[in-house]
Design a protein around this nucleic acid. Structure first.
Lengths: 222, 222
DNA sequence: CACAGGAGTTGACAAATCTTAAAAAAAAAT
DNA sequence: ATTTTTTTTTAAGATTTGTCAACTCCTGTG
């Protein structure tokens, strides 16, 4: 279930959006100001931000700029006016899409889905200098490309894409192997071992990030 | 005779366009959804795609993005509204031109011809002294022209046009062969081998650029 | 605090899988 | 018909993957 953060100073609009998006199967987080929104974004793992352009104190553009300082989360800006100036401005600060009020609910949904799909495509995660890039199929730390096997690559990807969350061996196996596999839990351990070794090999502080959760499984800590 | 793929959810519009373009001497393929259109595009050798922006499920933008994942076919997007936003968005995802509904048939024809002409012009990629030139149909390194077979030529072209991106054997086959081929992945390996040999033959540092991605496929690194 | 038992780590190794190279077969071009 | 190009097949050589067993580390208990 994808999580959408709504930022708008009008409560009525928040409720409206939230209701509609919840019905469409999204989990909604509401925030009445840019500042609160930023905090929420840091705390929760948000998949997309719907950001009102016109807000008192910190407006949408400014909020978007701040978001881009620490996150690549997709941002859709909601504007009342439809003007070229706004669009150009939005693109230049890293917004992903635009929608104008009043908007058609179907159009909004379509845009959200389009962006979520697109973002899903070029999947990459970064953590403390370590970059996992699915499209290029590389794992890079400080400019050095690590040579990892396909299984190792998908294993570390799964972990990094779910930071601060324990993944059981069971879950990892059902994610990384096809359904009818006979593979048993200990196999994960072997791959974890290899991943750790290779990360240590390039002086990545693997102990700080790839943790063993006793009796449960493994976890990537950011 | 140039082949044009029409993608629009409204049957009436498909028929209208098809009739008009056929009279103008184009072969038309009709598709009522983005997904079907993509399949058709993989199967047939299409010269141009006319793509409706507003469609249910997968809209024009999204379809265009998916097309660009495997094809450089010219795409004209048809929008109902004439808005900067759409144009900017379209350009950023690789569409070649725009036209707004309702459109003048002559204008549509003119744009199609203009693009076909332009596209015919020049497709080439250059990397570290190696030039792949589709128009002249040559592969040149430091003044020496490499003699390559058509399959080798399109294979290296596909790789060079998607730098730093792993291409799976599956994807390469669906791009380089017609859909109903029985060709299996190993065949790619043979051609890769030949390409490597020929590049080594002219002292091109092929190891630096044409990489094997174990368990996945091949990649051109710039 | 020591100890037992469960759980994780590590190294070794065999089996499975993938790549490469070479060459034969088939298809296409001349 | 002959040559060239493309595709398929094959086998050897690498690499990856899964399992085992010994070893170490945690945790709870007496």
């Amino acid at each position: 279930m994808k999580k959408i953060l709504l930022i708008d100073d009008e409560e009525r609009m928040l409720d409206l959006l939230s209701m509609y998006l919840s019905m469409a199967g999204y989990a909604c987080y509401k925030s009445t100001s840019g500042i609160k929104g930023l905090e929420m974004l840091k705390r929760e793992k948000i998949d997309l931000v719907l950001l009102d352009a016109m807000m008192p104190e910190m407006d949408g553009w400014e909020t978007c700029i701040k978001i881009r300082e620490f996150s690549d989360v997709p941002v859709i800006i909601v504007t009342a006016r439809h003007e070229t100036e706004d669009i150009v401005k939005g693109l230049s600060i890293g917004a992903d899409d635009y929608i104008t009020k009043p908007f058609d609910e179907k159009e909004l949904l379509a845009r959200i889905e389009a962006i979520l799909r697109r973002v899903n495509k070029h999947a990459y995660v970064e953590c403390n200098g370590l970059l996992w890039d699915e499209e290029r199929y590389v794992l890079v730390y400080n400019g050095q490309t690590l040579v990892v096997t396909p299984k190792e690559f998908s294993l570390i990807g799964t972990l990094m894409k779910n930071p601060n969350k324990v993944l059981t061996r069971e879950l990892l196996i059902s994610t990384l192997w096809s359904e009818d596999t006979e593979t048993e839990g200990r196999t994960i351990d072997s791959h974890i071992r290899n991943v750790r070794e290779k990360l240590r090999g390039v002086a990545f502080p693997v102990e700080k990030h790839l943790k063993t959760v006793w009796g449960i499984g493994y976890k990537w800590e950011q």
